[in-house]
Amino acid sequence: MEGVREALAVGVMVLGALFFVAGSVGMLRFPDVYTRLHALTKADNLGMGLLVFGLSLQAPGWQLVLKLVLIWIFVMIAGAISCHLVAREAYRQGVKPEQGGDL
């Protein structure tokens, strides 16, 4: 039982880390500020969520789990707000998005 939980925790965390990598790849490959923000915000949110979930499975004591969930919530709020602020700033300064077809 303990082994199953350990394996599940590591599996979930590897998955979470893969999302971090995918987000970073998107941030390097995508053509403009807005699309890069998409990659950063969503992939990081999910990656962090999965990491926190994996860690919660290993954490001794539920108070620590609460703390981990709180970190996730803070990262999420910070991510969403700063993503919005950067996008708004780019928009106000007139940064044009890439348009149309497959880029």
């Binding site: 971090f20 941030m27 923000l37 950063l40 990081d44 962090m48 990491l51 910070a78 991510g79 950067v86």
Partner: peptide, 13 residues
């Protein structure tokens, strides 16, 4: 700035 933000979140991770 986005890079700095990713720095923060992946650093935390």
């Amino acid at each position: 700035m986005m890079g700095a933000q990713l720095f923060g979140s992946s650093g935390a991770a």
